[in-house]
Amino acid sequence: MALARYIAAKLLAGIVMIWAVATFTFFIVHSLPGSPVDAALAQKLAAGIPYEEAQQQIQAIYNFVPTDSLWSQYRDYLWRLLHGDLGQSISYGGVPVRSVILDNAPWTLSLAVVALLISFALGLGVGVLAAMKRNTASGNGLTLSGSFLHGIPTFITATLLFFIFTTKWPVFPYGDAYDINVTPGFSGPFIASVISHAILPLAAYVISGYGAWMLVTKSSVVSVLGDDFVVAAELRGITTGRKMRYIVRNAMLPLFTILALSAGYLFGGSLFIETIFNRQGLGALQFNSIGARDYPLMMGSFLVLTVSVILVNIIADLLYPIIDPRVRR
């Protein structure tokens, strides 16, 4: 029963958060100067189309009534949002925002998930190592490297990788997610092309993500190492392997809570990485929509990014009782 209430509370908090973000996004985006609908309207008026007719055309294309009050636009927006309708993209000529986002999301998500898994595994391994050797030169070196790598911004890592491996030594191809010469499909050359195009962006994600995992793992393992149960287990003479299992299982708890944080971090990184490597994806979509003042797409992609961060948070909260039995009580 307590668990059901815990889950219900987390879900409710998530829904309220999504509403807050949707509202915030709507009003901040609508307070920006220079609307493309105004520009399109002015264009049609200048072409000699009567005002009423021009407005109807715009409404037909963009599903948007420019003269409505902000409040009724907001109500309209929320109502359509409840039905999964994010409106029509302006820069894509009236294509539904939902399908634009769905077309681009897999490229970002697949890369982000693989990057997350690699940096998690790497950070966990190196973090445990750094914790075990914490008072030696090599241990301190590992920690310092983690802090330093964690500190380098994603755009610097990505730009350097790009410069070194496509300009200086053209080892990896530049731009897009795969070669335009291969036809997409489940074939060897296509998969090889996708992988070779993904390596540099992936490396950029991992290099900037790994440091955080490593540092948190290290400090978490160090704090568990001093716990009474570890000392007791050592005195009982358990094997090193079993001891490590005890320690890692306990030390993983804080890692789990920063998983949610890192989801937001990854999406922030996707903006840089997709822009620098000229790939398609949610980050690039978001950036381009801002430049094109494509309000519906801007709101849609911002909302999708935020909602996925919230969802990751909810999932982390829901999985927490499984990982930490103490919460279940």
Partner: peptide, 15 residues
């Protein structure tokens, strides 16, 4: 904490 900071900053920089 939930708002993605970089996209938020880009949107705000237009304002």
């Amino acid at each position: 904490l939930t708002l993605p900071s970089l996209p938020l900053l880009i949107v705000l920089s237009q304002k």
